[in-house]
Every structure is written in structure tokens, then in C-alpha cells.
Design a protein around this nucleic acid. Structure first.
Lengths: 227, 227
DNA sequence: CGTCGCTTTGATCTAAATCAAGTTGAGTGG
DNA sequence: CCACTCAACTTGATTTAGATCAAAGCGACG
């Protein structure tokens, strides 16, 4: 890692998606912290499980999957990170999941130590670190409910509504990830994901323009399916 | 809530389980914060989902389950809290899960506001709040892998090893929770949990003395089953 | 315009859920 | 102290949702 093009150091003022407060700015926008941009090719690893957690990242463009593996290759994706999202923030010394670029991706990053000590660890910064971690925990708790108790259609409906909320600018959703990634996020096989999407298509709940370009035609119905 | 016996205000010096640093002390042991003891009957609610998160709790004796419900009653238990464990810590204004006593339970509690401002929110305290939340997140990430990708026997093996680590003092494990609670934690039915335990019993991996008193006879084999 | 990866769809299998009795055992009251 | 009760647990029979196995489509890219 860190063997690629390093673009200009920073202060890119706006990346966060519409409306959402920019969490990265909340922690990095203090005391003139130096942020660096960095790019990863599709499927390239950003950091590995148990590697030192020396940086905190924000997606500028592209998308990231974060996952754990069992020894025989079974994979659980814990989160997808989309433009504006902060990821890789750890309280301990190492990363607990692996992060990979789903497509060619550019991130902004800052050294974690600089956040914690150089900036003086103001109450403001400390609160932001805590709040971001608590946000991730909240999402993980929701996802445990999905993985432990929802059926296949409910999982796919939840996923579509989540992505719609997070990346549907124009009403059109351009999913960066393949069916296998979706399955590994939802605890399903790629075939089951595909069948659920086909059924929603047949039922007129959504329309495709290409397998990964989706328009939701009936969000209410999707909400009802989400249990 | 808060209509029960309030016992003497505090400074009970030792509750945390052997070896583990006392997290509660790390946050509450500053600036003479007043901690209160409080008791709940079996199955009594400690706090509800979306209720204000005004207190942080530590189990003194007994056990607690923390869960989310779907509208039709399906339940996902996100965590069990055992003596010494801290729970109910939120960054936001409300609880995101419900907490209930599994058996008659006594907790110590402190006002959250007193932690955050009265104590002056030292870097030390801020770091502890963050670290505890990050610890919960780490457990949630492990649990997502279990819920999304492990089979029934692997889930039960994981559960037994977790409980062994957390509450086996004498080699004997006294589970406070019923089979349904275990199932709702592992994303299984109570029957599936029971069958897995019976099989482990038949295979000589564990011994029972009463359905909830378990002795692990072969931890290595359990580890191998855990994927 | 051919190839290869992604996606869809179909057929079959299976792990776990569900449905249904029994069994156990801790607590209660006679 | 013993019998009764009721919830918790176990075990068996059957069903089923989703996994697995297997072929086609299709589309993007070289």
C-alpha cells in the first residue's frame, strides 16, 4: 500500500452528499491537518484485516466494500462506503475488516495520529470520533436484525431503500457493486438476490436500465415488504 | 422506570470479572461521580428502544439482553451483558435497542450528562467513551459474520466459546438465558439450538448438569467447528 | 465482432423452520 | 415431604425457503 499516485494535498471543500454534514471535515478540518488524496483500482485492497489502522479515509469518488472472511472463503460484507462516507476509523491499533475498492476509487485520507494528538484532541474532535463510531454501531445493529431475522425479499427491499436513500440523486440508482457483493452484504447467494430483483421488476416495483441501473417505481410497496 | 428500591450510593470497588479492566471505573471513577445501584426483576425492561439515553449502566449481578423487534414480533438479540459489562452507552439522544433483565439483576448506573460535562470531559474520559463504543462495534461486526455466513452448528459453537470465555469461572458455565434467547441471539429457532447442543452432548464435546449448566469437555473441537 | 464476466433463469437438493408430542425439572401448595 | 403444575427443553415428522448445481442470455470492452 501507499505505492501509488499521490495527488495534491488538499482542502477539497465539498464531497459529502447533499444535506449530510461532512463528518470528515468535523474531524480533519481542524488545526490545518494535511489531507492527502489517493486512488485505488477496482478490486484493489485499501487495508487488510489486522493491519495497523494508521489512516482515516473518506470516499471522494467510487465505492468501497468492507468485509470479514471465514477460513473457507465465506464472506460477510459489513458495510459499503459511498462518496462522502468516512471509513477505516478505529479506536484500537488495527483494522478489524478488510476494505477494497469496488470500482476505481479516490479517497481522501489523514493520519490517525494527527487527529488524535497533533490537533490537540479537543473535546470537539473527541466527540466527533465517538459519534462516527456510534453511527457505525447503529448501522451494524440494524444490519444484525436484517441478517438474523429478515427473509430474502425483506433483505433486498431494505437494501434497495438504503441505497436509494444514500445514492439516488436523480431518482436513478447506479449501483457500483455486483450481485455477489449484494448477496455477501445481505447474507444471501447472488442467485437469490437476482431472483428477488426479478420479482420486484415483474411486480412493477422497480425498473432496470442495465442490471445495475435501477429506478424505484413504488417506494411505499418496498417499505411494506421491509417488515 | 425508576420506581424501585434505590440502594446505597456507591463506590463498590470491584465488580468487573477477573482480569478485565473495569470500563465503568474508567469513565465514572472521575471527579467523584455519583453512581447508584438499582435492581430489576426477571424480564423487566431496563430501557426501551427510542427512549432517552440518560444513563449508562454496569451489570453488578444478573444478566441483560439487548434486542430489536420487527413489527410482527421477530426478535434479534444484539448482545448479552454479564456481570462487569457496561451497556446503554449512546452517543445520540436515545437508545437504539431495548434492554431487559434476563434474571433478577442489579446494575450500577451514572447519569450520562454527568459523564460528558460535569466531569469536564477530559481527553481520558472521551477516549474511554469512544473505546467502549468501538468495542461494541467490533463485537457487532463479528456477530454479523456469524449471522450472515455461519451454519447452525458453527453459530452454537461460537456462542459456547464466547460464554465460556465470558462467564466460566470454574470450568462450569451457568447460562442465565433460555434456549429461545440463545436462538434469537444466533438467528436460529430454539429447536435448532437444542438439537445442536444435544449433538455436542452426544459427541462428548460438552456435559450438562441441568439444561443451563454446561461443562465444555473439548474446547479444541468446538474451535474447529466454529469455522 | 468475439470473448469473458455478470446476470438471469431453471431444476433439484438440503439445512433449518415449523408443527407436534413428549419429557424434565424447578417451584408451589397441600 | 410429596405430588402437582407449568414453563422450558428435547425429540420426531414434515415442510419450505433458500442454497446449490447447471445452462443460457447479455453487454461491455478489447
Amino acid at each position: 500500500m501507499l505505492t501509488q499516485s499521490i495527488s495534491a494535498p488538499v482542502a477539497n471543500p465539498k464531497v459529502a452528499t447533499a444535506g449530510r454534514p461532512d463528518q470528515f471535515h468535523a474531524i480533519a478540518g481542524h488545526a490545518g491537518l494535511v489531507a492527502t488524496e489517493f486512488s485505488y483500482k477496482k478490486d484493489e485492497e485499501i487495508y487488510g484485516e489486522d493491519e495497523p489502522s494508521d489512516y482515516v479515509y473518506q470516499v471522494i469518488c467510487g465505492s468501497v466494500r468492507s468485509y470479514k472472511l471465514l477460513s473457507d472463503g465465506r464472506r460477510q460484507i459489513g458495510a459499503f462506503y459511498l462518496p462522502g462516507d468516512v471509513f477505516g476509523l478505529e479506536s484500537g491499533p488495527t483494522h478489524r475488516l478488510t476494505a477494497e475498492a469496488i470500482v476505481d476509487t479516490t479517497v481522501r485520507l489523514v493520519k490517525r495520529r494527527s487527529l488524535e494528538q497533533a490537533a490537540g484532541m479537543t473535546a470537539q474532535v473527541a466527540r466527533s470520533l465517538w459519534t462516527m463510531t456510534a453511527g457505525e454501531l447503529g448501522r451494524a445493529e440494524d444490519h444484525m436484525l436484517l441478517l438474523g431475522r429478515k427473509n430474502a425479499m425483506e433483505r433486498v427491499a431494505s437494501f434497495l431503500l438504503e441505497m436509494d436513500r444514500r445514492l439516488a440523486a436523480t431518482g436513478m440508482m447506479a449501483l457500483p457493486m455486483c450481485r455477489r457483493d449484494i448477496g455477501d452484504y445481505l447474507g444471501l447467494t447472488l442467485e437469490t438476490v437476482s431472483r428477488a430483483l426479478s420479482q420486484l421488476h415483474n411486480d412493477g416495483v422497480l425498473a432496470f436500465s442495465g442490471a445495475r441501473q435501477i429506478v424505484l417505481r413504488n417506494r411505499q410497496r418496498l417499505h411494506n415488504m421491509d417488515a
